Simulated assay, not measured.
Amino acid sequence: MAHQRICLVTLTTAILLASISSTSALAQQGSSTDQKNSTPDEPPVLGSAKYESNVADLSIEVNAVDRSASGGLTSLTYTIVNHGDERSDVISNLLSESEFSYPPARLAAPSLLDENEQVRYFTIMNTAEDCVCPAGAGDDGTPTRVPGGESQYVWSTFILPDNVSKVTVEFPDFPPIKDVPVS
Score class of each variant (00 low, 15 high):
residue 89 D to K: 14
residue 89 D to E: 15
residue 89 D to L: 15
residue 89 D to V: 14
residue 90 V to K: 08
residue 90 V to L: 15
residue 91 I to F: 08
residue 91 I to M: 13
residue 92 S to P: 03
residue 93 N to Y: 10
residue 93 N to Q: 13
residue 94 L to F: 06
residue 95 L to R: 01
residue 95 L to G: 03
residue 95 L to H: 03
residue 95 L to Y: 03
residue 96 S to K: 03
residue 96 S to M: 11
residue 96 S to T: 04
residue 97 E to T: 04
residue 97 E to H: 10
residue 98 S to P: 01
residue 99 E to Q: 11
residue 99 E to P: 00
residue 100 F to S: 10
residue 100 F to Q: 09
residue 101 S to Q: 13
residue 102 Y to Q: 07
residue 102 Y to D: 11
residue 102 Y to I: 04
residue 102 Y to N: 07
residue 103 P to L: 14
residue 104 P to A: 14
residue 105 A to C: 10
residue 105 A to T: 07
residue 106 R to V: 14
residue 106 R to F: 15
residue 107 L to Q: 01
residue 107 L to T: 00
residue 108 A to C: 13
residue 108 A to Q: 07
residue 109 A to K: 00
residue 109 A to Y: 01
residue 109 A to N: 03
residue 111 S to M: 09
residue 111 S to W: 00
residue 112 L to W: 05
residue 112 L to E: 02
residue 113 L to P: 01
residue 113 L to Q: 06
residue 113 L to S: 05
residue 113 L to V: 12
residue 114 D to Q: 04
residue 115 E to T: 11
residue 115 E to H: 05
residue 115 E to C: 10
residue 115 E to L: 11
residue 116 N to Q: 12
residue 116 N to D: 10
residue 117 E to S: 13
residue 118 Q to W: 02
residue 118 Q to V: 08
residue 118 Q to H: 11
residue 121 Y to I: 00
residue 121 Y to A: 02
residue 121 Y to F: 09
residue 122 F to N: 01
residue 124 I to A: 02
residue 125 M to H: 00
residue 125 M to T: 04
residue 125 M to W: 00
residue 125 M to Q: 04
residue 125 M to A: 07
residue 126 N to H: 06
residue 126 N to A: 11
residue 126 N to G: 15
residue 126 N to F: 06
residue 126 N to D: 15
residue 127 T to V: 06
residue 128 A to Q: 11
residue 128 A to R: 06
residue 128 A to D: 08
residue 129 E to G: 01
residue 130 D to H: 09
residue 130 D to G: 11
residue 131 C to P: 07
residue 131 C to A: 13
residue 132 V to G: 04
residue 132 V to Q: 05
residue 132 V to F: 08
residue 133 C to S: 13
residue 134 P to W: 02
residue 136 G to P: 00
residue 137 A to Q: 07
residue 138 G to M: 05
residue 138 G to N: 02
residue 138 G to L: 07
residue 138 G to F: 06
residue 139 D to F: 10
residue 139 D to V: 09
residue 140 D to L: 08
residue 141 G to A: 08
residue 141 G to T: 00
residue 142 T to I: 06
residue 142 T to R: 02
residue 143 P to W: 08
residue 143 P to K: 05
residue 143 P to G: 12
residue 143 P to Y: 07
residue 143 P to H: 05
residue 144 T to W: 09
residue 144 T to C: 09
residue 145 R to D: 13
residue 146 V to K: 03
residue 146 V to A: 09
